[in-house]
């Protein structure tokens, strides 16, 4: 296959736009959450300052090799996920490596960062980290089931595993979106989406009042800064997959910004309205409510 060197600056540009948008979007979401509690919330540029501060700390300590690699795996999971899906449909500049990977690869990348994080947090040796990891992996397994079913339903529906072709099939009119052609798959996937956004009622990995703050308890300075960078990339990368599979993709950056914002807002709305589940409630919820929707989606297709 012919390799275009131009792809490298193009991908870096995509990454740059997404990181900046993510930093602002995350702060905006926190502000909206604060507004629900009648507070002003953090300044919109606060995430940049936190990032600079954490990179600028003078000392840092390590607990071992995996402690180093945990945040790196996490970040590569986020970046990899972003680069293997077409960010802007039909654009040569921002399609990145989407021709090379299919849906299965994207599904793998969604899990990859969490596994790296589990190993890294495990080596930090803090009991809260171990509890957080076990909670996170069990919840993630339950939440991924409906998502996987929805993805298979979509793949069956369009008879392809290529994300680009799935987006192409949804172009033309709003009613061509998977949202309208296969609503059960979208419903199952959106319920699963709640489980991966670290917001109530499914924020039992971080669980601020129980196991503060879970896996990253021992992480600080540059390690933490790497994870913060990933925390702004990964949700967007994941939302891009949802946008491409279910909401017709985005043909330009303004549409992209709007759709990502709205999908993100969905998890925030649910988050401010409901208190946190316990871990067994959360898993049962996914198995009872989200999983049957996924099965229905597969059966109907």
């Amino acid at each position: 296959m012919h390799f275009e060197w131009m792809m490298i600056p193009y991908s870096l540009l995509t990454l740059f736009i997404v990181v900046n948008y993510g930093l602002l979007l995350t702060a905006l979401m926190q502000k909206i959450g604060a507004r629900v509690g009648r507070r002003y919330g953090i300044p919109i540029w606060q995430n940049y300052i936190d990032l600079v501060k954490n990179y600028g700390l003078r000392s840092s300590i390590t607990h071992g090799v995996m402690f180093y690699l945990g945040p790196v795996f996490r970040l590569s999971g986020g970046v990899g996920l972003l680069l293997f899906v077409p960010t802007i449909y039909g654009s040569v500049m921002f399609s990145n490596l989407s021709f090379a990977g299919d849906l299965i690869l994207a599904l793998y990348f969604v899990f990859f960062g969490a596994l790296g994080m589990a190993l890294g947090a495990g080596e930090s040796g803090h009991p809260h980290a171990a509890i957080g990891v076990s909670r996170g992996l069990s919840q993630m397994t339950a939440a991924e089931l409906p998502f996987a079913l929805a993805v298979f339903a979509v793949a069956l529906q369009y008879q392809t595993l290529s994300i680009t072709e799935i987006v192409a099939a949804q172009q033309g009119a709003v009613l061509h979106w998977t949202l309208f052609t296969n609503p059960f798959a979208v419903a199952a996937a959106m319920l699963s989406f709640l489980g991966s956004m670290m917001r109530p009622p499914f924020d039992l990995v971080l669980a601020p009042q129980e196991i503060p703050i879970g896996p990253p308890t021992e992480y600080h300075s540059s390690y933490l800064a790497l994870m913060q960078t990933n925390r702004v990339i990964f949700p967007i990368a994941k939302i891009v997959i949802y946008m491409n599979l279910f909401f017709g993709g985005a043909a330009s950056w303004p549409v992209f910004f709007l759709k990502v914002f709205l999908i993100y807002l969905f998890s925030l709305f649910v988050g401010v309205a409901f208190p946190r589940f316990r871990v067994e409630q959360s898993i049962r919820w996914f198995l009872v409510w989200a999983l049957p929707l996924g099965i229905v989606a597969i059966v109907l297709v």
């Binding site: 604060a34 509690g37 507070r39 002003y40 919330g41 953090i42 300044p43 300052i49």
Partner: peptide, 9 residues
């Protein structure tokens, strides 16, 4: 909400 120190970083 009354004092909201998050405003000041």
């Amino acid at each position: 909400p009354r004092f909201d120190a998050y405003r000041y970083g």
